[in-house]
Amino acid sequence: MTPSTLLLLLADGRFPAGAHAHSGGLEAAVGAGRVTDLATLAAFLRGRLATAGLVGAAFAAAAHRAAGQPDRAGLLALLDAELDARTAAEALRRVSRRQGRALLRAGKAVWPTAGFADLPTAGGGPHQPLVLGLLSAAAGLTRPETALTAAYQTVTGAASAGVRLLGLDPYRVQALLVDLAAACDRTAAEADRAAGEPPWRLPAAAAPLADIHAEVHATWEVRLFAS
């Protein structure tokens, strides 16, 4: 199947869902002195892709799968609870739901006929990967494309934040992303395979510093990024 323009539109950082306002935990990692240059940024992106990237992509793919199921609302509620259980830091749950809200606002405007009413919003908005999954389904993207979009966004957002936070050479940061492309493809493929499993078996890759960084960042009074 030929990849579609819709895939590029949804994956594009310019899609109006506020992605540019988030650093994916990089700002706090820079603040803690753990990311200082290209090499440490590369290690950060690799670790983020294997943890938050895999989990987010699997949940986006699972929501895409749920979109076409008869018990869609029940499945989405399960996915919501399962994703909460994989997000130990309250700050990260809040960020996911805030990003989900922003993406939903854009999605409703772009695809007004697609139904999003059954998205669980109890914790302050729907989790971002669930919105992305439903949006991708509404746009007619495939499940592997959905997983790829999610995995791709977890590294590109943090990478461009790296350019701003550390004043890195954007060409060399782009070269890092090119080096990561194969790993991103593999992560998306793994997430897509996992999405065929029941919700409780979805990946739960954890990163202690992601939780710690998120809670530190939430206490900062002055910051460049929302997360």
Binding site: A43, F44, R46, G47, T51, E82, A85, A88, W200, P208
Partner: peptide, 22 residues
């Protein structure tokens, strides 16, 4: 579900010792 966590370390776990994980 209350908690689901999988922490992977070692040669098969990309980035595990880096600044995003440990």
């Amino acid at each position: 579900p209350l908690l689901r966590q999988t922490l992977a370390v070692g040669p098969q776990a990309p980035g595990w010792s880096g600044p995003a994980v440990l």
